[in-house]
């Protein structure tokens, strides 16, 4: 009897909880898309009407925000910042992680513990001094300055992930390569990198997500519209009284689609990167 009661409670919680969660997670994204396509008058007249009315949809908001509100520029800036961050993170953390995993040098233990400490570091604690430095050096409104900061955020996670992956690889192959006369660089390039491709992809995806979504530093350091990234651009557009809900949601869709698309394309790798980096964020 007790068993039956408990099982029915469990099933009830499963079904109800599952449905509530699905709605709570999916609804905002669904509404984001619908709101970007619904004429403003309709949105204001009856906000509760959240159905899909194919005949009445308008697609003018996308060209409008893309051209009139310069989202093409913001998109290009975001793409630039993310791609450069991913590329530099991969190159330098591969070399660094290789050194920590394979080479003997003084300070190795200090370094591998230091990685974890830096990893836990709150960004807000350095916001003010960096703001001051960047202002002094003229790095504000400079996308490369932003990249520099993102690198400091991604290196610890990337070094940690790659170094633990490299440690699982047998060193024999690399030694064989060395004996055959390969230099360290070509051993890394021809043997270590191809073998660690899954970890590399995870690092790349995690880094991409960090750089694409980052708001605090983009907000503090970019104040000329020509240097805005998408998150900064959306925030600026939201403060503009002339901008409708519709346009704001259009911007949100434009910023969301690339990350979510990348996530679904590489879900398995992405999840691995998330769990490694999840300590942060």
């Amino acid at each position: 009897m007790r068993l039956r009661i408990e099982w029915s409670i469990i099933w009830f919680l499963r079904v109800v909880g599952g449905l509530v969660l699905i709605v709570a997670v999916a609804f905002p994204f669904y509404w984001m898309i619908i709101a970007s396509l619904t004429p403003l008058a309709r949105l204001l007249a009856d906000p509760t009407d959240i159905g899909i009315h194919l005949g009445e949809m308008i697609f003018t908001t996308y060209p409008e925000i893309w051209n009139v509100f310069h989202f093409s520029r913001f998109f290009a800036n975001s793409a630039y910042v993310s791609i450069v961050t991913v590329a530099l993170t991969l190159v330098f953390s591969t070399l660094g992680a290789y050194a920590v995993a394979r080479l003997r040098f003084r300070g190795r233990t200090v370094l591998s513990r230091g990685i974890l400490l830096v990893y836990m570091f709150p960004a807000i604690a350095v916001a003010i001094p960096i703001y001051v430095i960047f202002s002094k050096l003229g790095l504000r409104n400079n996308l490369n300055g932003l990249v520099l900061f993102y690198l400091a955020q991604t290196f610890p996670v990337a070094l940690y992930m790659l170094h633990s992956y490299f440690k699982t690889l047998p060193p024999d192959l690399e030694e064989a390569g060395r004996i055959d006369g390969c230099s360290r660089f070509s051993v890394i390039w021809r043997i270590t990198v191809p073998l660690s491709l899954p970890a590399m992809i995870s690092v790349a995806l995690y880094t991409f997500m960090i750089a694409w979504n980052e708001f605090l530093f983009a907000f503090l350091f970019l104040d000329s519209p020509s240097s805005y990234t998408l998150p900064r651009g959306i925030q600026a557009v939201a403060n503009n009284v002339n901008v409708s809900q519709q346009l704001l949601m259009t911007g949100a869709v434009i910023a969301t689609v690339p990350v979510v698309a990348v996530f679904f394309l590489f879900e398995r790798y992405f999840v691995r990167g998330l769990t490694a980096g999840a300590v942060k964020g």
Partner: peptide
């Protein structure tokens, strides 16, 4: 599906919730 709230840009989801929860919102 459940991972999307974390993956989507914080700016996009906060503004969506702001409009959704607005006193005159849906």
């Amino acid at each position: 599906l459940f991972l999307i709230p974390y993956i989507a840009p914080v700016v996009a989801v906060t503004f969506t919730w702001r409009l959704l929860l607005d006193p005159r919102g849906p």
